[in-house]
Amino acid sequence: MSASDEGVFAISVAARMASMEIQNLRVYERRGLVDPARTPGGTRLYSEGDVARLVRIGELLAQGLNLAGIARVIELETEVERLRTENARLGMDESS
């Protein structure tokens, strides 16, 4: 687990960092857009990666996308990144 994947921010801190309302973070979690870690007691802990995703959600909302559209965009962005990583790995393998 990288440092950006470790849940360290309480929901109030993550909301402030992403310039969002706490209630929105709960909605985004219910919709599967973000998946914060949980303490054994159930407290949400957001990572740097989660906050970056929340900021991205805010950008897409500002562009007029609804939550279903945002989910699809994030899914496609994740796939593009996976493919770029795979391409880079294959390119390195070919040059070896």
Rank of each mutant, 00 (worst) to 15 (best):
V27T: 13
A18N: 06
R72A: 09
P36A: 02
D5H: 11
I70P: 01
P40G: 10
R72I: 06
P36C: 06
L61W: 04
R16Y: 07
R72W: 07
A68S: 11
A88M: 13
L60N: 05
T39F: 04
A10H: 10
A15C: 07
G42H: 08
V51G: 04
A68R: 09
I22V: 14
R38F: 03
L76K: 06
M17C: 13
I74Y: 07
D93Y: 12
Y28S: 01
P36R: 01
L33S: 05
I22W: 01
E6C: 09
L33E: 09
T78Q: 12
E86S: 15
L33G: 03
I70L: 04
E21D: 15
R16A: 13
G64Y: 09
G7L: 06
Q23N: 12
I74P: 05
D35T: 15
L45F: 02
R16S: 14
R31Y: 09
T39A: 01
E79V: 08
A15R: 04
L61I: 14
I57M: 10
E21H: 14
S47F: 01
S96N: 10
E48V: 14
V8P: 00
E86K: 13
G42I: 08
R38H: 05
Y46L: 01
A62W: 10
E94I: 14
G49S: 07
L45N: 00
R56N: 10
A52I: 11
A10V: 08
T78N: 11
L61K: 15
R53S: 13
Q23W: 06
G42L: 06
E77L: 04
P36E: 06
R44A: 00
M20G: 09
R30K: 12
V51L: 08
S4P: 00
E75V: 01
L65K: 07
S47V: 01
Q23Y: 12
A37I: 03
A68M: 02
E79A: 12
P36V: 08
M20R: 08
Q63I: 08
G7T: 09
E48F: 13
E75L: 11
A18W: 07
N24Q: 14
M92E: 15
L45G: 00
E81I: 10
V55F: 07
D50F: 00
V13G: 01
M20F: 09
